[in-house]
């Protein structure tokens, strides 16, 4: 079986040091200048990559049992997100946004249906493989930044690459590149407490990108930011989206984010109500 590749980014990552414990990560790109992504089936031409599905959910259903009363958080969600999309998932509270993000982030299991990420059905992975999958395929950005407070910006970004088993030198170099990318080259040795909310969220984005993920999942990333920081963060992410074809999936209530999203999926009562591409 051959494995797919993704277009090389200007912060190209080597897969050579990815953890070998999981057989899924054994593959290396045989195509010069093209970066591999494990577990993704090969596509013939890079021109088709924009159309390549990163996320595919089929009949996704999630039922919680709260006090013996079943609560239907998702009711058969069919959703496909292609590589390079900048998608907002919106909807009122209780509509199932978070549940959907949890499932496509490999943090929760559906009651029924499938969630294919990079052509891997998450529901078939063991707990250990799922953790490994998240480490290598999914970048997370959290509403409250969730940086490790005792580590500097550089160390926060490096940490995820260290978990992937990359060399210290590579981790440092790539982290500096990423922090430059998000405009924080002068803050690399600052701890989160020394950074503004917007800066912390930029570090969080750099961290999410550090694992060289298939896509970045962000839950209300601007909820704690002021309008200036929100605009700056969105500019940065849109630039990354355009330049690197990095796929972003947000859940948000923030109209400023919704306005700038290229695709807006609206959930109502656990179902997709509208799916607007702009």
């Amino acid at each position: 079986m051959r494995y797919a590749h993704r277009a090389e980014s200007n912060y190209e990552y080597s897969n050579s040091t990815k953890e070998s414990s999981d057989e899924c990560y054994a593959a290396e790109s045989m195509i010069p200048g093209v970066n591999t992504h494990p577990m993704t089936q090969i596509e013939p031409e890079t021109s088709n990559l924009k159309k390549m599905s990163i996320i595919t959910t089929t009949g996704l259903t999630k039922v919680y049992n709260a006090d013996q009363v079943p609560v239907h958080a998702l009711r058969g969600v069919d959703l496909t997100i292609d590589k390079g999309e900048f998608t907002s998932i919106v909807g009122p509270s209780g509509s199932g946004k978070t549940t959907l993000l949890n499932i496509i982030g490999g943090l929760d299991e559906p009651t029924e249906g499938k969630a294919l990420i990079d052509n891997t059905d998450l529901t078939t992975l063991s707990d250990r493989k799922l953790i490994n999958f998240r480490l290598h395929h999914i970048g997370f950005v959290f509403q409250a930044y969730n940086l490790i407070p005792v580590l500097t910006a550089l160390e926060n970004v490096s940490f995820i690459m260290q978990m992937q088993g990359r060399s210290s030198r590579e981790c440092r170099e790539k982290s500096i590149d990423l922090l430059k990318e998000v405009g924080l080259e002068d803050k690399i040795n600052k701890r989160p407490s020394e950074l503004s909310g917007g800066q912390q969220q930029r570090v969080a984005v750099a961290r999410a990108l550090a694992s060289k993920p298939a896509f970045v999942l962000a839950d209300e990333p601007t909820a704690n930011l002021d309008s200036v920081s929100t605009a700056e963060l969105l500019d940065m992410m849109l630039e990354l989206n355009e330049r690197e074809e990095m796929t972003f999936v947000f859940s948000t209530h923030d109209q400023r984010v919704i306005d700038r999203a290229r695709r807006v999926v609206t959930l109502v009562d656990g179902k997709i109500d509208t799916d607007e591409k702009r």
Binding site: N132, L135, F140, F142, N146, I148, I160, R207
Partner: peptide, 16 residues
């Protein structure tokens, strides 16, 4: 708890 949950979410395994 949240931080440890975040670490687990981003890929830190149980043994770590």
């Amino acid at each position: 708890t949240r931080e440890l949950g975040m670490l687990r979410a981003i890929g830190m395994n149980k043994s770590r």
